[in-house]
Amino acid sequence: MKAIWNNTVIAESDDTVVVEGNHYFPATALKREFTAFSNHKSSCPWKGQASYLSLLVKGEMNPDAVWFYAEPRSGAEAVKDRVAFWKGVQVVE
């Protein structure tokens, strides 16, 4: 699977986990040179607190487009050390 934004592959892996329709990539598959800090947080009743990263590709910013659960709750261990995408990021095979 590939995660693509702004015509650039930002993550690629054959090892994704699908949770609630979202492909979670291993955190090591994310190309960190395309990420920027975000202080945004959100909460999921069963997964816990999500943290975010923004994308910066070819001079364009996509705020809070990457999310992850640093310490997922019991029952959500499948997303530990993984990242997922939204806000126009395409996930394709």
Rank of each mutant, 00 (worst) to 15 (best):
M1H: 13
K2G: 05
A3Q: 07
I4D: 06
W5E: 04
N6C: 12
N6W: 07
T8Y: 03
I10R: 04
I10A: 07
I10E: 02
A11T: 00
E12N: 13
E12R: 08
S13H: 01
S13I: 01
D14I: 00
D15M: 03
D15F: 04
T16I: 15
V17Q: 09
V17K: 15
V18N: 15
V18W: 10
V19E: 15
N22G: 03
N22E: 07
N22M: 02
H23A: 13
Y24V: 09
Y24I: 07
Y24N: 05
A27S: 09
T28M: 04
L30H: 12
K31I: 15
K31F: 11
E33P: 03
F34H: 14
A36D: 14
A36K: 11
F37D: 13
S38N: 14
N39C: 05
N39D: 13
H40Y: 12
K41T: 15
K41H: 15
K41A: 08
K41F: 10
S42I: 11
C44G: 11
C44P: 14
P45V: 03
P45Q: 09
K47I: 08
K47M: 08
G48M: 10
Q49L: 06
Q49H: 10
A50H: 13
A50L: 04
S51N: 14
S51E: 13
S51G: 14
S51L: 09
Y52C: 08
L53Y: 15
S54C: 15
L55A: 09
L56H: 10
L56E: 09
L56N: 15
V57R: 01
V57P: 03
V57D: 11
G59I: 01
G59F: 04
G59R: 14
E60A: 10
E60Y: 06
E60W: 00
E60P: 02
M61H: 11
M61P: 00
M61Q: 12
M61C: 00
N62Y: 06
N62D: 03
D64C: 08
D64R: 11
D64K: 02
V66W: 06
F68K: 08
Y69F: 14
Y69N: 03
A70T: 12
A70Q: 09
A70C: 02
P72M: 07
P72N: 13
R73Y: 06
R73H: 09
E77D: 10
E77N: 05
E77K: 14
A78F: 00
A78C: 04
V79T: 06
V79K: 05
V79P: 00
D81S: 10
R82I: 05
R82T: 10
V83L: 05
A84F: 03
F85V: 12
F85K: 13
W86N: 02
W86A: 01
K87C: 08
K87G: 11
K87R: 13
K87A: 15
G88V: 07
V89S: 00
V91Q: 06
V91A: 01
V91H: 00
V91N: 00
V92T: 14
V92A: 07
E93G: 13
